[in-house]
Nucleic acid binder design. Structure first.
Lengths: 223, 223
DNA sequence: AAAACGGTTTAATTTCATTTTAATCGGTCC
DNA sequence: GGACCGATTAAAATGAAATTAAACCGTTTT
């Protein structure tokens, strides 16, 4: 939850915790972004008018990184244009203040029931074919064989997996895995893709990372 | 859509049809139930106070039959208890009348994007006849057969598809696909149209790209 | 404090696909 | 026939990606 009005934030945090949800709270967009980048969440509750980075931008950042995460906008702005902008930024719901806590609760439940839960409930595991990534233990394996990755390699592979079957451009990767906005002259990404390929493809039968010249890279299972 | 106020029903039906949604309308709950039992829908829009079977019951009926179908409650009842009952009956969203049609639209889109994990209206797949272009995976296929395209070929085809049935001049193409403003002496466009024709027409039964001498090119389905 | 180390980034080189140019061919309209 | 317009082809130019080595940087070890 990203909410700068501490009183509201505290009330919601308390209410949600009582309902056995685990909640992290940030009071500004920059901290919210950092929390999001460092953790794996199911759902985000975002105020729009918050310091440093507004809710729309934050929603867009979240969406560009992961389509699955649910986003609820929570704001005093009730105009239709604001709602539209919220949904266009990727929100799943938009609630206007003041609101009843019970309503927030049922709306959260309605969204969560649509969330595709990963197999092996509770444990954070991502899979593509025979490639398995454990987000808790940070272990990666293929055909059961363990593959040690460095931090950056792991982040890059995680980004690929979360966007499997989708061509991601170098700019997408630069923004989401590194924190560079625009830097034509670096080739870190190419180098790291090369590192990854050596580790997750070289001693195995099938390819995983394909390059689309002039477009970017895709991680996919076959052909 | 189940809505007994015919004026509202008609307005919404028209608006949604314009957005290329296919809509069936019932004016009471009993007919609504019969329609659901006989068809396969993606989403239901339900008024609550409707004759013969109210919206809550109908929502429960739909839910008991199919968890996947998305349900939006559309009603004048704005009390939190009503909303809670709506969500408990299985609704995915609850909109209070009067509301802005645009808001309904973005809420529908927000829900549909969660469905099937894949496309709905306003999504990332473009089609013309049996030609399918996936903007995420950057894959293009005809008759189910995959057709690899280079970046420029892909951009050019995308431009044609987005302007289907419209004659686009070489200048239009030059400005939108290449970034050249005016350059009489290059024939890149002709060459690329030729590349495209070889890939997307040569081994298939019907033409797609037609030349309008002195005007430009059109992409269209038949004749 | 210096050295060693693992990880990350930069830079330079090689390789190769894509893009563009340019020349030729074929048909159509005066 | 000649001029015009587009289609087609091959060759040349360009630029993107892979690969390698070396520099850099922060942390830990000596």
């Amino acid at each position: 939850m990203v909410e700068d009005e501490k009183k509201i934030a505290e009330t919601l945090r308390k209410g949600l915790t009582e309902q056995h949800y685990e909640v992290d709270v940030a009071y500004d967009g920059a901290i919210g972004k950092k929390l999001f980048d460092a953790n794996t969440y199911d759902l985000a509750i975002l105020d729009i008018n918050i310091p440093l980075m507004n809710g729309y931008e934050l929603a867009r950042h979240i969406r560009s990184y992961n389509e699955e995460i649910l986003v609820i906008m929570l704001t005093a702005m009730s105009a239709t244009e604001d709602k539209i902008e919220g949904f266009e930024a990727g929100a799943d719901d938009y609630i206007v203040k003041p609101f009843d806590f019970q309503e927030l609760l049922v709306r959260i439940r309605a969204l969560l029931k649509r969330l595709h839960h990963q197999p092996a409930a509770g444990s954070n595991i991502l899979k593509v074919g025979d490639l398995v990534m454990n987000l808790d233990s940070k272990e990666v394996s293929r055909e059961g064989r363990n593959i040690p990755l460095t931090a950056k390699e792991f982040q890059l592979l995680e980004y690929f997996i979360r966007n499997k079957n989708k061509v991601v451009s170098r700019i997408d990767i630069a923004m989401n895995v590194w924190d560079i906005d625009f830097d034509t002259k670096t080739n870190v990404i190419d180098v790291y893709v090369n590192f990854l390929r050596k580790k997750i493809e070289k001693d195995f039968s099938s390819k995983l990372i394909y390059t689309q010249v002039g477009m970017g890279y895709v991680l996919k299972e076959n052909s």
